[in-house]
Design a protein around this nucleic acid. Structure first.
Lengths: 206, 206
DNA sequence: CTATACTTGTGAAATCTTTCACAAAACGCT
DNA sequence: AGCGTTTTGTGAAAGATTTCACAAGTATAG
């Protein structure tokens, strides 16, 4: 398939959220204009984004909400559940484990690891925190699709390397570092400092 | 000043992190090539990014690390501290309050609010959680530059409106909703579901 | 059955961002 | 001082993304 811009994929994910809202409200049909209004973009943008994947609407009518939800879920690969390993049982890891949206959207946390002996063995949301030394053994026994790195910056890269060695192809990184991985592995980094600094820039330059 | 792309600002923030690392390592001078290598971009990109704000290097030599750190800090508006209000004392709020990088980078959390009476009055990292009913009174007494929204989705917009009414110009939003604000207010949303879904897309389409 | 109103899907145009490529500057060496 | 090496700063080219604008469907009403 032709290369799709990351911005397009992010918007599809947003559209999906709005469509699910519409569905809950019992709205059966939506125009690109209405969807755009809800998401702060333009109708042309919505139609263009969708057009990369097919034509899902009816001229004069708009899109069937239920159908478009299905199509976008398909495009985003949300028709299955993903198995997630959480690496790091600190504050943020703890918050994420309890975040219901995770499971709700098909991302199931199946294991948690930490290096701190004080944390190992504790139960968290029905899962036992394991020693990160057992990471390889555990992942081989109970494979995962996605690793979430919630560790201090200094160990994030080496843990990522271990994930890569195990064949994990997707990493969500909360450590404030730039991770390097082979081309066939995808990393998303959520960098709080970066977000704050763009706010700082915006506050300063206006 | 000419409009600067968000992507440029984000890269500047990254460069700053790398430059600080270099500084710690005692490296005094850096070329655009070296900075690019560290950040996974190209030297031309680095030079172009910087060129929007001035010319900070010496031909043949590169950039003085210390000087470039200062310049970028200036560009990003990091020469001051920002006062931050945390709205929502749940798991994520709790994790953020304890995140040292916040204060380290000049963002000082000065107040925490929650609607849950069970949480109000508790001390957190030296701060007392206040009832969100007192939000206006408290912010007027102790003004803030940035509000961090860490609440359930359904109250995020109304709290944002209250921030706007108080004259707060920057919001960092962790609630999984699209916030609408006037043009002179800037919002950054960190949307976990979105990040997971881009991973899902990447895992599916390869 | 025709006219009217709407809304999609999509090439083409406009805009924005990144990459290229090279003159100009700075330094060290002889 | 002149020469070779390095690296910046920046127009221009290439590439990517967004917006425009309109033909082509679809429905409804008379």
């Amino acid at each position: 398939m032709r290369k799709i811009a990351e911005s397009t994929v992010r918007r599809l994910s947003l559209y999906l959220r709005f469509l699910e809202e519409f569905e809950e409200q019992g709205i059966e049909t939506v125009s690109s204009e209405a969807l755009a209004a809800r998401g702060g973009t333009t109708s042309a943008q919505v139609r263009k984004d969708l057009s990369f994947f097919g034509s899902f609407g009816k001229r004069g009518l708009g899109y069937s909400v239920a159908e478009l939800v299905q199509k976008i879920r398909g495009i985003l690969g949300l028709g299955r559940t993903y198995r997630v390993a959480m690496i790091g049982a600190g504050k943020i890891g703890s918050a994420l484990v309890q975040y219901r949206g995770f499971l709700q959207r098909g991302f199931e946390i199946v294991s948690i690891f930490d290096a701190d002996p004080a944390k190992v063995g504790k139960a968290w949301n029905g899962l036992t925190v394991r020693d990160v030394k057992e990471f390889e053994a555990e992942v081989r026994r109970c494979p995962v699709d996605i690793a979430v790195i919630v560790t201090p910056a200094d160990v994030a890269q080496s843990l990522t390397d271990r994930c890569v060695a195990l064949g994990i192809k997707a990493v969500l990184n909360f450590a404030p570092v730039q991770l390097s991985v082979p081309d066939d592995v995808v990393v998303k980094t959520v960098n709080l400092a970066l977000e704050l600094e763009t706010l700082s820039y915006a506050l300063t330059n206006r």
